[in-house]
Design a protein around this nucleic acid. Structure first.
Length: 548
RNA sequence: GGCCCGUUCGUCCAGUGGUUUAAGACACCGCCCUUUCACGGCGGUAACAUGGGUUCGACUCCCGUACGGGUCACCA
């Protein structure tokens, strides 16, 4: 086969050479050990947890090493492309503190290694496609979809391996005249790689997450260029990651299957392949068994889900970090207030198997994250969520921010912070009693108590209550009320001999709590009353007396 | 079906041949603190999928089996 003639036939307009490309995209001048990696999503508009995990790992590796992290848009499949998807992706990643040093942006490209959208790089791929043809390592294939489907059916019937290889690679060694005839007839073609690998040959490969793995050589003549002249993922990956000088590729382990082909491609093109980190899939429990999270079945795969549910960005981020690096939790305990970027992420600590998504654990992480915020910070976060998902709450808070912050500030800032909320949606039911129009009696006084005692307790408290009292004085007054009713004021004494009293100061407190909050459980009642203010407290106590 | 990956408490995971009577966290249970709840403290239940090797010794190495997962597109 005259490869020069074939190359001229296939790529008549390609004049640039691989050397031109090398010159156009020179090696990066970076310190020793700097990681260059990328996020390379296809713009489908759906940003999921997997994107975040992959992006987070890459971003950390790059920025912890003084390297470069860039965004490349893999828009080679025009059919699946969703308008505006790139913008959504960039916005979402930005919310999760994932910033790109170069690559596609909302307004265009930024960086010297672009274009960063693969469809705009067609001419670049063609240079290397032509090179492979010249080397006799690529050839055109004119098989139709029907022919390929029939081939597959035949392979299934014969119980042989599926795919375009060996005897099934019908265009692999066709004479030039046949190719020319098809071309002249205007038939569409794809460019295929001419594999010389054999599944009989195995070799070892070191993946940075999986460790040493057994690899079987690829013997398939995979497609390099589709009939529209746009490359497949495989070819684009090799060309782009070489020319963009990527040192590390982080991707899902579903790519392990095609790794042999990728390595083969790098070799044919005369390039050193990058280091690979193949990460296991996120899974979830489905009845008795685990399964990969699926786009269709599992809403929790979409990042928008977490925003909607009211998880803070930091909670999701820290949860993922917890799953990826088990020493993260210890670090966080020791450095509760340190910026998260101070944590030294380690790819070595990742588990080669996929993690199970644990919603309960996420809530726990989230409670811890939220408990560390100041009243001002959590106020801002809640508002950012409520503006889209709880307009009524937003309006209330906006109407009186100082009051809202006072509510949110209860129990905050101490050594033992309250952990009342996992998500912002937990806020409303927690604090509805702070608003008169939302207040309602959710619990009732247990039947064991006499109504007269309850009434007397409320009246006694109301008679002496002064919002200016400190917590000790305030509680001493409650004790006095209890004693006046014959209730035990000292809890130790009461516990030793509960039969001797009709109730205790704890019960009196419960009556008051019921009156003021409408329920038997609440945050510290002194703090609650301080926030509500004297007038509201007395009004509620009075209101409850009326109902008894 | 071929090829590949994985398998430690319910869950996330530590663990790279002896330091392990297998650590921690979440969940669960008990106790303590406490005017309730939350928080916090202390303690408890609970795991190396399985069968063979190799070795003085295996969670750690090798082989088989089972079970999960992935992949075998002109999708990424």
């Amino acid at each position: 086969m005259d490869t020069n003639a074939l190359a001229a036939l296939l790529f008549p307009n390609v004049t640039a050479t691989p050397a031109d490309m090398e010159a156009r995209f020179p090696e990066r001048q970076l310190p020793e050990g700097a990681v260059v990696s990328r996020m390379a999503p296809s713009p489908t508009g759906f940003v999921h947890l997997g994107n975040l995990v992959q992006g987070l790992i890459s971003e950390r590796m790059c920025h912890q090493s003084g390297g470069v992290f860039f965004l490349r848009v893999e828009d080679t499949d025009a059919k699946r492309e969703v308008p505006g998807a790139v913008e959504v992706l960039i916005d979402t990643m930005e919310r999760y503190h994932i910033r790109y040093d170069e690559g596609a942006t909302k307004t265009g490209d930024n960086g010297a290694y672009g274009p960063y959208r693969q469809r705009q790089r067609a001419d670049i791929y063609h240079v290397f496609a032509k090179q492979l043809v010249l080397q006799g390592e690529a050839y055109p294939c004119f098989c139709t979809e029907e022919e390929l489907t029939a081939m597959r059916a035949e392979q299934e019937a014969k119980k042989v391996n599926f795919g375009y290889y060996g005897p099934y690679a019908v265009w692999r060694d066709r004479p030039l005249e046949d190719v020319k005839a098809q071309l002249d007839a205007g038939k569409p073609w794809v460019l295929r790689y001419r594999s010389t690998g054999s599944i009989e040959h195995k070799f070892k490969f070191v993946d940075l997450v999986k460790g040493e793995i057994d690899v079987t050589e690829n013997d398939m003549d995979h497609v390099l260029l589709k009939s529209d002249g746009i490359p497949t993922y495989h070819f684009a990956h090799a060309v782009d990651d070489h020319l963009m000088r990527t040192t590390h590729v982080v991707r899902g382990d579903e790519w392990l299957a095609t790794l042999p082909f990728h390595l083969q491609l790098f070799r044919s093109l005369g390039w050193k392949p990058p280091k690979y980190l193949h990460i296991g899939p996120l899974q979830k429990m489905d009845g008795e068994s685990k399964r990969k999270l699926s786009k269709r079945k599992d809403p929790e795969l979409a990042l928008t889900y977490y925003r909607q549910e009211g998880f803070s960005v930091d909670a999701v981020y820290e949860y993922i970090m917890t799953v990826l690096n088990s020493n993260f939790e210890d670090w966080r305990r020791q450095n509760p207030d340190a910026p998260i970027d101070d944590f030294r992420f380690s790819a070595k600590k990742m588990n080669p198997a996929g993690a199970l998504f644990d919603a309960v654990k996420l809530r726990d992480v989230s409670k811890n994250v939220l408990s560390r915020l100041t009243a001002d910070e959590i106020y801002d976060e809640i508002m950012a969520w409520a503006v889209d998902f709880d307009r009524d709450l937003y309006d209330r808070f906006a109407a009186d921010p100082a009051y809202a912050k006072a509510i949110l500030g209860i129990g905050r800032g101490g050594k033992k912070p309250r952990k009342d909320f996992a998500v912002f949606a937990d806020v409303r039911p927690y604090l509805d009693f702070f608003y008169d129009d939302l207040f309602e009696m959710k619990d009732a006084v247990p039947d064991a108590f006499r109504k007269e005692d309850v009434k007397a307790a409320l009246a006694g408290f109301a008679a002496t209550y002064d919002a200016g009292d400190d917590a000790v004085t305030w509680f001493d007054k409650i004790k006095a009320v209890a004693e006046g009713l014959g209730f035990a004021a000292d809890m130790k004494e009461y516990r030793q001999n509960p039969e001797a009293f009709p109730g205790s100061v704890a019960d009196v407190s419960m009556f008051l709590r019921l009156a003021v909050t409408g329920r038997v459980n609440s945050p510290d009642m002194y703090d609650v009353m301080q926030v509500l203010g004297q007038a509201r407290v007395l009004a509620r106590i009075d209101a409850m007396r009326q109902t008894l």
